[in-house]
Amino acid sequence: MLELTDYSVNFSAGAALRQANLTIKPGDRLGIVGESGSGKTMLALSLMGMAPDGATLSGALCVDGIDMTQRNEIEWQNIRARRVAMIFQEPMAALNPLRRVGDTVMEPMRVHEGLSHDQAQARALSLFEEVGIPDPAARLRQFPHELSGGQRQRVLIALALACNPALLIADEPTTALDANVAVLITDLLVRLSQERQMALVFITHDIAAVARATQDIVVMYGGDMVEYGPTAEVLKTPHHPYTKGLLDALPDPSRTTHDANGKRRRLPTIPGTVPQLQDLPQGCRFAGRCPVEVPQCAAQKPATQSFAVNRSSACHLNEGAKR
């Protein structure tokens, strides 16, 4: 239902998203992981037609087979909420503080589907039940500041579901929540996706959450999609050096905390940080931080290599391994 072909988002400072290719079918659950600045939020906003002012879009972004890349704001307004909906990182700040949460959830139904107040309220009530908000009738009349973080995130999910979208984008939905609440929200999103045959794009830097929630995974770095494949496979046998670094940086409970000599093991890290947009290398974005860099990396963008129908990676070192 949604397809990206060589889709790029360019700013005067540089490319925030480079030639992304992606297909999302109904019911798919796709994880997108990467550090801050890897372009994952830019990708999510682009899928909503909400790339910031000043961005130049190229390539094709097809929703239901229609290329939306150059469409205007009005045309996007019909897509948002009805076909593609999104929930954001900060449930504290993402709700209008002056409105009762019920009114917020009912607004898109009334605007897009012309529902009466009573119809919209009935649907909001059943949505609140569906997303697991206790005592939903009373919650409808409350203000955001009266709800806990987890409940606000559930309200935001209900808001996103208001017009039965075919795709839900969750941009770090659990980052601001307590760990146990985060797990509940993650499971809720999976359940909703399965029950509604709704595609889910789950953006996070939490590998554990991706492993729990998604079938497929995209690893992003510096605006490039560096690796793609079934979640379990990618996490088990990563092909791209960045994915490897990312996984090595995870604390692993099965590993002992001390090595054979009794010295305390240090958690491996990827040296450095993601450079600013204008400082990214022209070739492979990971050049400069990559442990296995070869001379051509900085100058030449590696092509995406397919290893299987649904497995690919973009690294010069993989080129020899092409099947």
Partner: peptide
């Protein structure tokens, strides 16, 4: 600049509606 304005836009509300119903009261 606040997040809930982005939420309102993501709900497919028109710019005008976001401005007058969400931004102005706040």
């Amino acid at each position: 600049r606040q997040d809930f304005v982005r939420t309102a836009r993501a709900s497919g509300l028109s710019r005008r509606r976001v401005l007058w119903r969400h931004v102005l009261p706040n």
